[in-house]
Design a binder for these strands. Structure first.
Lengths: 226, 226
DNA sequence: ACCTGAACACCGTTCAAGT
DNA sequence: ACCTGAACACCGTTCAAGT
């Protein structure tokens, strides 16, 4: 008994022991395979073959669990970016990384616009903001610039995530945009002429390209600040 | 009896009769005074002196109720903009209108990033997008431009709304930013140098001005598309 | 120290029954 | 046609009791 305790304290934890990492991992699996609404403490406890209350020993509450899951996904995406890359390229690839992460895990999009100080948000701010110096943006203007870029990403993230939450689970981003376009077409053309015109473009465009075009637009604006 | 029916049919509805408008109005009151979490069908029914189920005769579900409440607030803000205004000024004042609406009603910020096709979103797209033509932006580029502007607004809306949801109800936007700045200062400066530098600026800046600076940054980018 | 699972205090939504 | 309110099927979270 004494020996076992010594062993586990040295970190060779039993495979079946609960830990925050194992809980977050199981949460991500549920979120990815069954969607946001399927993540309940009961479902999570069942998957981990434990009681619902046990989870609270490792995680304060559901918010912390979601923030931890989101941070894990986002951290993975941002560290992929080559550190030596040209700053403008680095920003583009980080933005695209977050975009793709939200495509693969829509719940990430929802969570990002839920807690301003969560680790994932801070990571994104640091990753993108940290390249502005090298881009020649003066210190005083850097906050405005990172705010424009990151809030654009978060705004889009929220919209896609909402679509994924509301539409059937197998709907992809293109089908989602098709749904939006259809709804726009049903509006009164006299009252919504602009939205009607956009509906035509929305149906058959590459939204990843579209997303990058927005980033580039903001980067042009940032260039002028220099 | 026959006479009364005739009267009510002509639209002179009894003051105490339930209607979608009355329900939405009561919902907005609860949301504004007691916060997002206080809006339950039970609380709403109590305020309207009726049963919870009665609400479902006029409103499909809670999503529709929130979308209707949000649309009412946003519609009020956007129609305030003078129709003859210079397009760039019109865009700025619409953006600011939405920003102020979210300040006054944080739940609007949360709801805007929850349903991509809700009336309020379509209104904002039309209001802002409709001015791009006059700004000389070619048709093909208009979608990218409106997307950059509106997603920036929505992203920021989501962050502020999240802050308002998580902090005590009497916290204003400035105090909220102070909280964020404090959390940023607690991070490891070696790992988050950029965020640390921004924390100093965040504490004492005018966030309304900051918001407009972001809009202007994007407008500069849009100018280059012409 | 860590886990169990029943219990608490809620939710949104439905629906038989009323008027 | 419209309203009532009990009932259903859930939630997140707590906590006494176990090991």
């Amino acid at each position: 008994m004494v020996l076992m305790r010594a062993r586990t304290q040295r970190g060779e934890r039993r495979t079946d022991a609960l830990s925050k990492e194992r809980i977050v991992e199981a949460a991500i699996e549920i979120l990815d395979t069954e969607g946001e609404s399927a993540l309940t403490f009961r479902a999570l406890a069942a998957r981990l073959a434990t009681g619902a209350g046990a989870i609270y020993w490792h995680v304060a509450n559901k918010d912390e669990l979601l923030a931890a899951a989101t941070d894990q996904v986002v951290a993975g995406v941002l560290t992929e970016v080559v550190s030596g890359a040209e700053p403008r390229d680095a920003i583009r690839s980080m933005a695209l990384g977050v975009f793709d992460a939200i495509d693969a895990h829509p719940w990430v999009g929802a969570q990002l616009s839920r807690e301003p100080w969560q680790p994932a948000i801070v990571r994104i701010l640091e990753g993108i903001g940290g390249r502005l110096e090298a881009l020649g943006v003066p210190q005083k203007a850097q906050f405005n610039c990172v705010s424009a870029l990151v809030n654009y990403i978060l705004g889009l993230a929220g919209q896609y995530a909402a679509g994924a939450r509301l539409l059937p689970r197998d709907t992809d981003r293109t089908a989602f945009l098709g749904t939006v376009a259809t709804r726009w077409t049903q509006l009164d053309p006299a009252e919504y002429p602009f939205v009607h015109r956009m509906a035509a473009q929305l149906a058959d465009h590459d939204d990843r390209e579209q997303f990058l075009a927005g980033i580039d637009l903001i980067l042009v604006g940032i260039r002028s600040v220099r």
